[in-house]
Design a protein around this nucleic acid. Structure first.
Length: 565
RNA sequence: CGGUGAUUAGCGCAGCUUGGUAGCGCACUUGGUUUGGGUCCAAGGGGUCGCAAGUUCGAAUCUUGCAUCACCGACCA
């Protein structure tokens, strides 16, 4: 490709709307352009990268034995009614009507469609197991699209689904996919980790996420500092303290200050206080909403995912309104405490281990000190409901927790029969009986990977693409070609030669000064620059510059092809 | 959804307080100059100042409403 025929579209200045580095560089290097919130056009350079990522993903999926198909992006709402997710999925699901007023949704994922398909196509256990995948645009009406294509509303995703008669077979395919994912991210040249994950709205049993490690990531990942253990913080278990709980030594005293003021104005350690949050409890149909109190140590944070998975607590987790609070206890939510609270109390393991602690007194602007659980609060329900923090013992039993940020680029689930049940996806088993299938599902955010790769591979000049996904393998950068017939001749010959060899080459034939050319190619991040100049032509040499290392070296023109062996 | 801020040429911004029909840098066009790291000089093209209503002789500027975009939050005792 010649730049004179190519939509390079690089920018000197960073558009004001871009916050994270990958978004800034994607705009500056001319990879994408914004159309509306969370919607992006992929320009030629960006699309080249996207296709490369896509092809690696496709290649490894096929190697793992999955069949590629393509499903419609627009799906009948009926299907979602059938699976029960039409309401569950919430406002992220974009709904629309056709001219006949029939309801449709834009597909945020394809469990319904594929399960329906397989239910219709498969009849016998002999056809199992089966894995299908597609690489297709998804639409999710995100609450807050941000960071460019990192969290867009329309994005490119690879979604794969596997179908099995037995759990054992599912587990085998799950492991197979896990391995395929590792090969994919290895080939992409990314620093990534598989981590234990929560299953979220897709549902199911076992699950791993694949995270690219980067400070700008939206997820917190808990690692052990001395084993392979890694888990999304949503999922990482906070172990109960192992030492004996101290016996009470203090009596309860009332302080006429709300807890917040008390902590600010005295030297009470946050770790000896508890905070009390009221949430809505799970209620049967027709039953009035109850409230449940969640109690955490003052320095800990509630883990909503853990909390809402407890029986007796509404999912999604809903905090009590001021009105609901005052209906249960005669004080403001800032003066709540577990003692004397006449509702179910769920206490975090660490909070439950305290003795002589400080808490709200359930009376406006009053607190208690010297409170003890059995002595003062009666029966309590102890659960793990907090986020782990750095230094906690790792749940794997080895080492302590370290927390890093990650960008979720892949997620695999053992789904079980949730969708197969709902969509009546079954085959005849060996005994001639109908048997519902069990499923796995496996996603990769293809467009997100492009942004994640940039987050991990850039410097002050621009993007430093891993070789496998660079938009071009090499660029020819002639010095003042317009003035030197020799330079032009050599550059043209090189271009011809590289094209013949099917090497993706960008020939910069613009009439620009060298500085402009260098700056653009470094911004775009082409791994190898071939610099053709009068300076070295007398010796039949050109200069080769490595974008990753920054190293420059001279090379005989006739040896250039050796760079690509 | 709540909060904050923004919206003036393709991009980055000034002008608004104190109303008088719009400016700077980059980019673009033309001519010259320069030529191994974003040259320099000159001339030029491009904007119903997000939209709508109002106030006024007169609105980018004041008022109101709407829209769009971005950031923060949606555990906080």
């Amino acid at each position: 490709m010649r730049t004179s025929q190519y939509l390079l579209s690089t920018l000197k200045e960073t558009p004001a709307s871009a916050e994270v580095i990958s978004h800034q560089l994607m705009l500056r290097a001319g990879l994408v352009r914004n159309l509306a919130s969370g919607l992006y056009t992929w320009l030629p350079t960006g699309l080249r990268v996207l296709r490369k990522v896509e092809n690696i993903v496709r290649d490894e999926m096929q190697r793992a034995g999955a069949n590629e198909i393509l499903m419609p992006m627009v799906q009948p709402a009926d299907l979602w009614e059938e699976s029960g997710r039409l309401d569950d999925y919430g406002p992220e699901l974009l709904r629309l009507n056709d001219r006949h007023k029939r309801s449709f949704v834009l597909g945020p994922t394809h469990e319904e469609v594929i399960t329906k398909l397989v239910a219709n196509e498969l009849n016998s256990y002999k056809q199992l197991p089966l894995s299908l995948f597609q690489i297709q645009n998804k639409f999710r009406d995100e609450i807050r699209p941000r960071f460019g294509v990192m969290r867009g509303r329309e994005f490119l995703m690879k979604d794969a689904y596997s179908f099995h008669l037995e759990q054992e077979c599912l587990e085998k395919t799950y492991q197979n996919m896990f391995d395929a994912y590792c090969r994919i991210f290895d080939r992409l040249g990314l620093n990534y980790r598989p981590v234990l994950a929560d299953t979220g709205s897709i549902g199911g049993d076992a699950s791993h996420e694949f995270h690219v490690l980067a400070d700008s990531g939206e997820d917190d990942i808990a690692f052990s500092d001395s084993s392979d253990f890694a888990a999304n913080i949503e999922k990482a278990e906070a172990l109960a303290p192992t030492e004996e709980r101290a016996e009470p030594t203090q009596n309860i005293e009332t302080v006429e200050l709300k807890l917040e003021r008390l902590i600010k104005t005295t030297d009470i350690d946050l770790k000896t206080t508890v905070k009390t949050l009221l949430v809505v409890g799970a209620s049967e149909d027709g039953e009035a909403e109850k409230l449940v109190a969640l109690v955490l140590r003052g320095d800990h944070q509630l883990n909503e995912v853990k909390a809402e998975s407890l029986t007796g607590i509404a999912s999604p987790l809903t905090f009590a309104t001021d009105e609901q609070v005052s209906a249960v206890v005669n004080c403001h939510s800032t003066s709540l405490g577990p003692k004397g609270l006449d509702i179910e109390v769920v206490v975090d393991r660490s909070a439950a281990h305290l003795s002589d602690f400080v808490c709200g007194a359930n009376k406006n602007n009053h607190s208690f000190t010297g409170v003890n659980w059995q002595r003062d609060c009666g029966e309590i329900n102890i659960q793990d409901i907090r986020n782990v923090v750095e230094g906690d013992p790792s749940p794997c039993g080895k080492g302590n927790i370290v927390i890093k940020r990650g960008i979720e680029v892949g997620h695999i689930f053992q789904l079980g029969d949730k969708y197969a049940q709902a969509m009546k996806c079954a085959v005849l088993n060996e005994g001639g009986k109908n048997q519902t299938l069990t499923m796995g599902c496996y996603g990769i955010g293809v467009s997100r990977i492009v942004a994640a790769a940039i987050e991990q591979n850039h410097d002050k000049y621009g993007i430093k693409w891993p070789k496998a996904i660079a938009p071009f393998q090499v660029a020819i950068v002639p010095m003042n070609m317009a003035k030197s017939a020799r330079v032009k001749e050599t550059a043209e010959a090189l271009y011809e030669q590289l094209n013949q060899a099917n090497i993706e080459v960008l020939f910069d034939d613009r009439k620009e000064r060298p500085g402009v050319l260098f700056a653009d190619h470094e911004l775009i991040g082409t791994p190898i620059l071939l610099i053709v100049g009068e300076r070295n032509l007398d010796n039949q040499q050109i200069e080769v510059k490595d974008r990753i290392t920054g190293e420059k070296s001279l090379m005989a023109i006739e040896d250039v092809m050796s760079l690509f062996n």
